[in-house]
Design a binder for these strands. Structure first.
Lengths: 248, 248
DNA sequence: CCTGCCCGTTGATCCACGTCAACCAAAATA
DNA sequence: TATTTTGGTTGACGTGGATCAACGGGCAGG
C-alpha cells in the first residue's frame, strides 16, 4: 500500500486510478495505463447537501459530474409550475451531459441525500479525450447510454399503465443497486412518492395505491421507503405483458 | 466553380464541404479548413425506400447516419407488441446514436418517405475526432442535444394533456421546417395519425379529435396530412398554460 | 412529554382518454 | 371503371388514473 491514498475531503485531488467506483463510472473498461493518465481529469470534489442543487437550469455549463457518494434527481420545469423528474442518479453515474448542447444546463440536479461528486471540467475532458485513447469512446458510450435510457423512459411513459411503470421502476432500481454490490431484493428509496410519481408520469396517490396493491398481491413488502422485492418473476411479467389474460 | 462537384448517386463519394445541409448537420459551426478535413468522414450514401428500415433493433452498430433527403421515425418495441415512436428525424439530423452504448442498435429507424442518408462509419468519426479540432466538440453537442430533446419529450409525456402535447408537436415541427427554409405556417406531415399518437403517448383517435378541435377553434387548418398553423400564439399558450382559466 | 409538519395511505368522485364500432375518402390494385 | 385497402373522422360508452378530502404515523424541535 502506498502512503498517498487520496483522502475524501473537499479540494483535495481525486484520482480515478484510486477510486473503487471505476467499474461503474466514466473510466470503465480502460486499461491501467490509461487509467493513470486520467488522474488529471477530476478538477476537484464538491459536497452537496440534501435538497441542494448541484446545478440549475440556465446555469452556464462548465463541467460534468461523477457521483462519488449519494444520489440525485434531475428535473425540468415549465413556466406554469409543472415539473417532471427526468431521472434518478446513483453513485458512479454522470450528471450534466444536458449542458453540452447549449453550453448551459437545461435541467436541475438536486441531491436526494447528502452527496459528493467529482467535478470534471468539460474543457479538460475534451482535451484528455484527444490524448487518451479510450476515454473518448468511453465518454461517447456514457452519452449514448443516457439516450437509450431516455428512450426506455419514453416507452414507459407513452405506453405502459401505472402498475407496469412502477414495476419497471422497481426492477430498474434493483438492478442498479445490484451493480453497486447491494442487495437486489431489498433497498431503500431516497425519493418521495411524489418524485417517483413525477418520474413515472403519475400522481403520488396513484404511486401509493400501486405500492399497496403490489403488497396485497405479495409482490413486494413496503415499509415507508424501504422496499423488499418478493416475487421478481411476476414483477417482470407485469412489465412486459400486463397482469395476465387480455391478450390483445 | 470546380468540375468535380459530387453527384447524388449511390456509391459516389460525398463531401461535407460541398453539402448545403452543413448548417443543420454534424459539421455545423466548423471552420472552412476543418470542413475540408471532413471530406473523408462520409463513407458513402444509402437510399432507403419508404417503409424500409435503415437499421433495426439488435443490428450491430457500425455507423451513424446523417439524413440527406427525406425523413425517418425511430421506434422501440416490447415483446408484447406494443411499440413507441421515440422520434421523427428530418434532413440534416443524425440517426443511430443509440447504438454506441452497446455496440448494437436499440431501436428501429424507418423511412417515412423515400430517403437518402450519408453513412458515417463510427470508427472513422472517432479517428477524425482526434485530428480535427472541433469535430469532437460538435459531435458531443449533437448527442447532448438528443438528450435534451428526449427530456422535452419526457416532460410532454409525463405532464401534459392530449391537446397540449399535439400543440407542442406542431410547434416543434413548424420550427424545424423553418430551420430548413420551409414555411413555418404550412407544412406536410409525413407520418400517420397513429405514428403521431405513438410518439405523443396517445391513441390515433385522440390525435384525430385534437386535430378536429384545433380546426374548430381556428387554431389550424387540417387537410389530411397538410397542416396550416393559423394562430401560433394561442397554440403556444396552450402548450404552457392549458387553454385558459383552471388556475392550477 | 406534547406539537407541528411532512409524507404516505386510503376512500369517494370525476373526467380525459381509451375502446369499440361505424363510416368515409384517398390511394392502391385490378 | 369497379374493388380493395389503408388512413382518417366521428360517435357512444367504459375505465384508469386524477382530483379532492380526510386521516395517521414518523420524526424534529420545544
Amino acid at each position: 500500500m502506498r502512503a498517498s491514498v487520496p483522502v475524501t475531503m473537499n479540494g483535495l485531488k481525486t484520482a480515478c486510478s484510486q477510486c473503487n467506483l471505476v467499474e461503474l463510472c466514466l473510466p470503465f473498461g480502460m486499461s491501467d495505463s490509461e487509467l493513470h493518465q486520467l488522474d488529471e481529469l477530476v478538477g476537484g470534489r464538491r459536497k452537496v447537501k440534501r435538497q441542494q442543487s448541484l446545478y440549475r437550469a440556465g446555469d452556464p455549463f462548465e463541467a460534468i459530474y461523477a457521483i462519488r457518494a449519494g444520489s440525485f434527481k434531475t428535473d425540468v420545469l415549465l413556466e406554469d409550475g409543472r415539473d417532471q423528474v427526468t431521472g434518478f442518479q446513483m453513485t458512479g453515474e454522470i450528471l450534466g451531459l444536458d449542458g453540452i448542447s447549449t453550453e448551459s444546463h437545461s435541467c436541475n440536479a438536486v441531491a436526494l441525500e447528502d452527496s459528493e461528486v467529482c467535478v470534471i471540467p468539460y474543457a479538460k475532458l475534451e482535451q484528455l479525450s484527444h490524448e487518451v485513447e479510450g476515454l473518448q469512446h468511453q465518454f461517447h458510450k456514457v452519452m449514448s447510454r443516457e439516450i437509450v435510457r431516455d428512450h426506455g423512459v419514453m416507452m414507459l411513459l407513452g405506453s405502459m399503465r401505472a402498475e407496469e411503470r412502477l414495476a419497471a421502476f422497481l426492477l430498474n432500481m434493483s438492478q442498479r443497486f445490484t451493480a453497486r454490490g447491494f442487495s437486489a431484493a431489498e433497498f431503500h428509496l431516497r425519493m418521495t412518492r411524489e418524485e417517483i410519481g413525477s418520474y413515472l408520469g403519475l400522481k403520488l396517490e396513484t404511486v401509493s395505491r400501486a405500492f399497496s396493491r403490489f403488497q396485497e398481491e405479495g409482490l413486494i413488502a413496503v415499509q415507508q421507503k424501504h422496499i423488499r422485492l418478493l416475487d421478481t418473476t411476476r414483477l417482470r411479467k407485469l412489465v412486459q405483458h400486463q397482469t395476465a389474460g387480455c391478450g390483445r
